[in-house]
Every structure is written in C-alpha cells, then in structure tokens.
Design a protein around this nucleic acid. Structure first.
Lengths: 202, 202
DNA sequence: GCGCTGACAGGTTTCAGAATCTGTCAGCCA
DNA sequence: TGGCTGACAGATTCTGAAACCTGTCAGCGC
C-alpha cells in the first residue's frame, strides 16, 4: 500500500468486500484484511461499521445516479424531460439490481434500517425534479405550481419505480407501461392545456 | 368443541395463534393444540402451512378493508370520494399496524413472499377506485379517461400510503399532507376544469 | 508525535447435536 | 364410511459452547 491509509481506500476496499461476501457476511476485519492492515486502523478513519456501510452505500448510490444527474443539461422540453428522467431512474436502478445485486442488497437493507443516512442523496433527486418543474413553470409548459412541494409529490407518486422495496417488480413485464400511466396522470395534472399536452387515447 | 372441525374454526384459531406468537413462532401444531385436536386433523382442511397463513391473512385483510368497502355507498361527489377513499385506506391501515402488529407483520411478510395470494384482495381495491373514476366520468366531474387503467395508475401512485413496506412512515408527522399533495396532483389531472376543482395555492 | 498494532471485554455469529415441525398415511372408532 | 389419531421421514429450528466480530486503548516504531 502506497502512503498512509485514506478514507477513500477504505471505502473502495469495503465496497469490494461487500460485493464479494454480501451485506450479511462482510465484516470490518475483512475490509482490514483486504487492505493489509489491522482492523483498528480502519477504525481510525471510520466511526463504526454502520457508518462505513452508510458511506459506501452513499458513494455507490451517487455513482448509480450519475446518468440521472447528467439529464440536468437536457434540452428536452420539461414534460418530456420529466418523463425521460423518471424512465432513466427506473432503468438505472433496474440495471443495478441485476448488475450488482450484493451492493443493491446492502442499499436495500440500509434503506430499511435508517433511511436518514440517505436523505441527502434522495433530496438531490427531488431537487432534480423540482428543477424540471421550475423550468416548466417558467416556460409555460406547466401551470404555475409550487416546485418543491410538487416535486416531492411526484417523487412519492413514483415510489413504486425507484424505492428499493419494490425492486422485485421492476423486471415484471409492463413496468415501463405502468410508469408511463403514472407519468400521464402527473403530466396532465401539470399541463396548462391538458388536451393538447398528453394524448387521451391511452 | 361442538360438532366437526370447520375451516372457519381453524382460521380463527390460527389468527389467535398468529397474534399470540407472531408470524415467526406460530406453528400448525400450536393451532391444533388451541383447537384440542391433532395437527393431522388440521391438515384435513388445509393443504399447507403457507396456504393457511395466506387464508388467515386474506380474511384479516378483508375485515380490515371493510370501512373502505363501506365507502362504495358514499354520496360524495367523485373527486371528494376519491380523496376520502384514499385517506380512509391510510387511516385503516395505520390503525392496524398499531392495533394488531403481529397480524400486520404476517401480512407484511406474505406480501413480500407471494403477493399472488393477495392479488384478488388488492384487485378489489383497484375496482373500488375504478368505480369512483367511472362515476366521475359519468357525471362530468372527471374528464373521459379509461377507468381501469386510471384506477391502477392511481393505486400505484399512492403505493407509499397503503403498501405495507412503507408502513413505518405512516405514523410520521405530515403523512396526511403528503397524501393530500399526491391527491391534488391526481385530481387536477382528472378534472375537466382544472382551475376550479383544486386550489392552486398549495 | 503520528499512524499503526496487538490485546481485550462484551456481544454476536457459528456449528453440531437434540428437539421440534411439516406433511403423509395406515388404521381406529363412532 | 367419514372424521380423527398416532407414528413416521425429512426438513427446519433450537441450544449451548466455541469461534469470531466490534469497538477501545495503551503502547510500539518510525
């Protein structure tokens, strides 16, 4: 190991251990072993196992959400952008359940225990929605609503498509259509001219 | 015990055993003991422990949903009725989490394992929503939407307020307000004359 | 002094053997 | 005959002792 032990190294080692052994079997002794140090050294940088797990999960979640964060620079009009944003979030999360099931399980468990640790990350998502709502209100594609409260309501209404406790259903056939149906409901409610913005034929 | 053993007696005994010992400790031997018969007798009326648990939970859920089912005869106009219906469902479920935590835990676990066993019960709820939507479309308080699909979308959008995996948040302060915010979003989307039906000041 | 270590107390997990449970069946008794 | 029973095999769960983990600390070596 080059230089002194850093928190980043610990997080990376912990992520690998978590991936290899899963959230039930991973111990901080394993993390220390992976780094070639004693577990007491790990505790110099980390206050508890729970805090370590929360930090790893938070970093992982931030990386997972990167494709969603990238949509902040989108040039689509706000209604399409909101729909794309929600579909991207679903796609990214579904991909991670299948791609990295051990880390997803850790995330799932953390969400169940203390979602406080993730509030900041989740608040970032709500802020993204709020930004889209604000843009829509500004350019007239949405009626004048209060952006933050509306964003929270949208986040709540689409919980089935991003909350980990519903992950098992994300691979069901028709999930995309079910999300679209909820999007329709929301977008019609937001449009200043309902009949034009979203097709009624659905 | 008067007369031959009936399935209803078994369900009632099983419900008591479940309540007393919780979903982890309750066994069919316990149920048989409570009825003063051998466990082989129980198996004459029930095909497996899982089926028994599903049946108990289904019966319990139907009783829990009774106050919601009673709203079918409501005379409120459809928008208010939809809101009342959703608030009643939340109230009834929250009450049961606190009132009957062991049976709620059994329900929660069953939902996680095979929600197939509960599909019929849940479909009944969606049908209730569909009936309200249909009534609203008929009397003009909702725009002309397809009732079943819309009802499913409403059910999905309000998952946070009735799906057992979110039960822990139902006693948080502000839950009612969060449900109202989602209701507003939905109701505005359904109204034929948005600006009159729901206040924009929220 | 700073970063790391080995040792330690208290608590949790593991593991093998014992006990219990599930689901079935041949037979008993009214 | 129809409803119940005791006995049973295989699977699951309990139990208690040993191993292991978490979090802390005094002290070692650079």
């Amino acid at each position: 190991m080059a230089g002194p032990l850093t928190r980043e190294q610990i997080l990376t080692a912990a992520e690998n251990v978590l991936r290899r052994y899963g959230p039930d079997k991973a111990t901080v002794v394993d993390v220390a072993r992976a780094l070639g140090v004693s577990h007491a050294s790990v505790y110099r940088h980390v206050s508890s196992k729970a805090e370590l797990r929360a930090a790893v999960t938070r970093r992982w979640l931030t990386r997972v959400h990167a494709p969603v964060a990238a949509l902040r620079d989108s040039t689509e009009d706000p209604p399409a952008r909101l729909r794309t944003w929600l579909h991207t979030l679903l796609a990214v999360k579904r991909h991670k359940v299948l791609d990295d099931p051990e880390l997803f399980a850790a995330y799932q468990r953390l969400t169940a225990e203390w979602q406080d640790a993730l509030t900041a990350t989740l608040d970032g998502l709500v802020d993204d929605i709020a930004a889209i709502v604000r843009a829509g209100v500004r350019d007239g594609s949405f009626r004048p609503v209060e952006p933050t409260g509306t964003a929270r309501a949208i986040f709540t209404a689409t919980l089935a498509f991003h909350h980990p406790s519903h992950a098992a259903t994300w691979s069901d056939p028709g999930t995309e259509e079910r999300l679209d149906a909820v999007c329709d409901l929301i977008l019609v409610g937001l449009s200043p001219d309902r009949h034009r913005t979203v097709g009624d034929e659905r």
